[in-house]
Design a protein around this nucleic acid. Structure first.
Lengths: 218, 218, 218, 218
DNA sequence: CACTAAACGAGACGGTACGTCTGGTCTTCCC
DNA sequence: GGGAAGACCAGACGTACCGTCTCGTTTAGTG
């Protein structure tokens, strides 16, 4: 599930006939998109500029992505392929690890300017929301799930019997971690450094391990 | 401190001479901006449309705001004037209260579509970042500070001696609360209902009250 | 020499590549420009209005003409393609003929409102001056040259040995004829009718002191 | 400066009579208009620029002139006050004189750019046409009438019995002279120098067929 | 090997919004 | 009570980008 399946779907009908779509063009476009994000930021990035950076016609872009938002989602999604969570031996250390991983990603200028923008766009675009979820959010959530499994194996966290409750719980933790990091980095615009990661993790783990988080109410 | 003084600065030089700027126009523009956000969303909102909704010339907009982002920040900022935090008797209940307040705000379509967008824009615009902080973020943070004071008065939380550490701590809590709510509402696109607020508050308060959150390291 | 070749140059680089410029659009724009001149006059004519009359985007106008003046020159230039000078048998009659031809042209509302305006504009725009010369003035001057040739063939006028002097002479006569007609029609705003044309021609051919200028006819 | 005291700057007398400022403002505006015409030309001249050059509010301009065209007519009209026609002793010489007078006027950049423009504007504005006639055209026509009187007094031209015919005749001559000079200067954009004035006058006085039009001089 | 179907680059197309500028009008305060 | 200062509305300006389209040209696989 965490396997590096990064075959994005914009090559859907591998038509038997006709000239096949250029693979180099595909890669060049995504590369050019990231470069344009770094140079120009989301709002000043234009399809024409991406095309000319990639040495490609605008037509070629629109043959593969419906609009700027979807292109950018795919372009930054590959950054999330790098996410790994080495086992650091404790829940606390693993949380710190995942926080710093997220933070490092958000520190890259192409991610910083693009992520919030596409999310903002997705509030009015269901298709985009789905694409973001599958290309970005799910990749992040894997790390949270992985961390929980490890903590449960270590005995730091109990196993949850109700799978629905387990899912809700994971979602909550994911929203807390990702939300806090994003808010710190982009809204407060303060660095997510080792100290902050430590304080945050301490607070989160203490809350998690008090064992009452999974109670439910009507 | 929480008093609702919302005189935003785009009337900076109250020039002695010439015709003064219309106050009704100012209000009409902000109202029209929110209406346009509801109808069109951030990305489809145009200055011309706002102007005509407000019964005002485009010139009048540009005389007061440098661009769409700054206008929208001011337009949604007034929503945050409504934030209040009634004393519910316990830290846990107060956190739930603030979470639901934030969530109610984010549920309004004009806020939903605008907030992430202006934050995204602010990653490349220092002036905008400042405007967001003073017009929006600081208003929210007041609630967190108020909640902590109450909890300390009740004896639920210890007083912090080092003021710098106290400030860091408040910032951390604020990033967690605001970040989690925003992430849940906009990225995960799931409802911030009473149940979620309860689970979140439980987790946070357990973490907070374990008393070790304020330790520092080099 | 008088042949009605009216291929104006705004299609200069017949580029091998890319989508070719639409010929129908070209014609529709010039037609729409003349219609707008008739309805609105020079000063109220706008590029946007021309575009929408022609069923064309503003971009398409600006891709072909640098500004309103150049567009209008091309639009009215085609009117001058209709100029013909049938041989009426005598210098005097031919002058009357050319005068009435010019006058008929200036009577058209699209020409009336546009010609002076573009000439006024050309006093500060060298490129426009050249365009007017090639698109309009040269077309008119042909008639003067043709009339002189006929008069020389008839023996009414001597052949000029010095070609430079011949050119100067033709220019002088052209300035007199065109200038008088334009001044009568637009500055004095009086009709250039058959009677005026007769008086003018008589004066031009015979001079002030011949004493025949003041004869009248029915 | 010698007779010291507190030298009140440019507003010399605290006059008790009505409007000391008004008259100089009037002159300053016309002066500023001509300066703006020289610097910017007709089409780029703006009321705001004229006002600020004249040290006057836009309101003051519009209180006195209905629009830009009327202002410019008045501004250039004063140039025509300088027109004089010294008696040079012969019809031919007087024609040359008037031609060179007109030409000198048209050579001034403020006149060159403005005259055609207001005439163009007047094709759709009856009030403007009247203002041009009384402020400019009539001033010029006086010279033609004066020249004819002198020629008649000298016996070079006959007296005309029919006053209507006399008027028509003067109009014709005026259109020829003014038209030719304007066309030469602005449309052909060639200099109206002594040589051209001579050739023109010769032709006008003697006619095309007199065969003397093509003589040349140094 | 020719044929065909699709992708390719180039660039023009209709639209739409931008942010600025100007024309004229209106308020407000000062002299 | 005239005048400067400047805000106001209306709307054109010329530019930029969007996403689509029409070209003529590759570049495969298929017949």
């Amino acid at each position: 599930m965490v396997a590096g399946m990064s075959s994005h779907p914009p090559l859907p009908p591998p038509s038997r006939t006709g000239r096949p779509r250029s693979v180099e063009a595909h890669a060049a476009i995504l590369r050019a998109t990231r470069a344009a994000l770094v140079d120009l930021g989301w709002s000043k990035l234009t399809m024409g500029d991406v095309a000319s950076r990639a040495g490609v016609a605008k037509t070629t872009l629109y043959r593969r992505w419906a609009n700027k938002s979807e292109l950018v989602v795919d372009a930054v999604a590959v950054l999330f392929d790098e996410l790994r969570l080495p086992d650091r031996g404790s829940l606390m250390a693993d949380v710190e690890g995942v926080v710093l991983q997220f933070a490092a990603l958000l520190d890259r200028p192409e991610a910083k300017t693009a992520l919030m923008a596409v999310v903002a766009e997705s509030t009015r675009d269901e298709a985009l929301r789905k694409r973001i979820r599958s290309a970005i959010v799910d990749r992040q959530k894997c790390l949270v799930l992985l961390g929980r499994e490890r903590a449960q194996a270590r005995g730091e966290l109990p196993y949850e019997d109700d799978p629905a409750q387990a899912a809700r719980n994971a979602d909550l933790i994911f929203d807390i971690i990702a939300g806090a990091v994003v808010h710190r980095a982009l809204v407060s615009a303060e660095p997510v450094d080792r100290e902050w990661a430590h304080s945050f993790s301490l607070l989160l783990v203490n809350g998690l391990t008090s064992g009452v988080a999974s109670e439910s109410e009507s």
